[in-house]
Structures are given as structure tokens and as C-alpha cells.
Amino acid sequence: MTSEANPALFGRIPILGRFGLWIWRNPLIAPALLVVIVVTQAPFILTVIYSLFRWNLQRPENTAFNAFGNYVDIVRDTRFLDSIVTSLTFTVGAVLLSLLVGLIYALLVHDRFFGRGIVRTLLITPFLIMPIIGALAWKYTVLSPIFGVVNWIVRQFGAAPIDWIGMYPVASVVAVLVWRWAPFMMIIILAGLQALDDDQREAARMDGAGPLGEIRFVVLPHLKKYLQLSALLGSIFIVNEFDVIFMLTQGGPGTATTNVPFLIYQSVFYSFDIGHAAAMAVVTVLGTIIIVTYLLKLLGSLMGDLD
């Protein structure tokens, strides 16, 4: 366990050597780090390699090195660009609305009132439910033109039932995402509210600020950091959303709700075009890295100094 152990062994290859040395010196961190590297990075390297081949699982005889052909194809094909736009729409829409709804939830349950524990529990539950079951419940108990309660209500007013998922697919997916992620935002915002000095709020109230003024001038400025954090973490999860889309819309109708993960899924498991899917995955990862670098800076500033 000495830090001088075999530096020469690693010294030959500078970067790998430095990394090896670091691993050697940090036996407590090494196992966790190596597991994550092997399981997430090795497959990614393979993905990069696959992306350079024309490779459809169903036509092994047609497999060949394709250089950047797959990349040219996915850029030429509007589907990929469309799916990026869809991903961003879902992420921005769902994150902003979840923030708003989560803030409302948090303000509603922050102070003591009759049944607060039950109300908070009910509000958190959508986040705990297995996403595919949550989506299934929405699809059939809420939105379905035949079994859905919303359409039953619509019919009571004499209107014809509406195919919500078919007519308003993006809104339907965003609704389910907000339903699922607003509790997440609420939880973080609640932590922020707990850290808020009660005296400050009291003072604002005594000044006749009224509930809205109190929120506007005292609560929101204090919560800024927490809202940023929930937006950041929410984006991480929502941008990769797959389960809800799989269960609710299968990317349709048309390609209205096909986001990047679902498009890649379709490319792998419906058309078995591994080359294309890999190229899309690589582009997505590179794009994500750029965004992540920026977001992580933000995260770093939110977390204070790390070293």
C-alpha cells in the first residue's frame, strides 16, 4: 500500500500510467470506479466501432466496413433530427412544468394542516410507481377513449369522446412525465423550504405582503438554488426517458413522440440496423457530453467546492 509502488510499470504509457497509478493508490475507490468503467465505457467503445460498419442483424452477408456512411445517413434522414427536437421538447416542457407543479405541491404541503402526511405521501407516490405501470394506468384509466375517466366526463357534457393520446400525443406524454417528476421537484423544493427562516416569512406577512407577495419576494429568491438543482437533475433523467414512451405511445402517432432513446430502440429492435443505431448513439453521447460539461459546472457551483 505504498504510493511508490511500481511507478515504472505505469510510467511507460503516460495517461494510462497515471490512471493506473491513481487506481493503485486508491484501493478504496478502485473497485467501484472499475465496475462503472467496465460496464459503461467498454460497451460504448464497441458502439463506436459498430457505428463504422454497415450491419443489419438480419442480413449478415451484407455486413461491411462503411466508414462514416452511417453518420451521413442519419444526418440525411430527418427522423434523427426530429427525434432530437422531440427529446428537447419533452425535456424542456416537462422540466419547466414539473418545476412549477412541484413548487405548487411544495407550497401546499409545507405548512402543517389536517392530513398533511397523507397528502404528501399521495403526492410522492407517482414518482415511486414503476414507470411502465404509471404509463399503463394513464393510458387505460385516464386517457383511453373507451375506458378512460376523462372521456367519461367529456361524454357527460354531451361531447364525443376524444382520443387524447392520438390527438395530443406530445401533451399526453408531457402530462405523464410531469405527473411522475413533479413529486421529485417537490421533494427537493421542500428541503429548500425547510431551510427557509420562518421569521423571514412571518416578517413579510406582518408587513401585509399577502401570500403571493410572500412567495414572490421571500420564498422564490431563497429557493433559486434548489430550483436550479431540481431542474438539472430532472433534465438528466427526463432526457433519457424511454419507459413512458414505450408504454404510452410507442413513439407515435407518426413520429410525434419518438425521442432519441426510442428512435435508437426502434432502430435496434424493430429494424435490427445496428450500424445506424450505433451512429445515433455515438452522436447522442457526444452531444450529451457537451451539454453535460456545462451542466456539471453548474452542478459544481451548486455543490460548493469538491476538492
Binding site: Q58, G251, G252, P253, G254, T255, Q266, Y270, S271
Partner: peptide, 23 residues
């Protein structure tokens, strides 16, 4: 042809988009 799964899926997806008036 093996590619028909993908082709058929994509085309019917576009057609369903036309059914709901997206295009």
C-alpha cells in the same frame, strides 16, 4: 426482404401521422 419490417413500420407511422392530421 428483411428491411421491410423497418420500411413498413416507418411508412405506417407516417400514415398514422396523416390520419390524425399532423401532415
Amino acid at each position: 426482404i428483411p428491411e421491410f419490417q423497418d420500411l413498413g413500420n416507418r411508412c405506417t407511422q407516417e400514415f398514422s401521422g396523416a390520419v390524425v392530421g399532423q401532415q
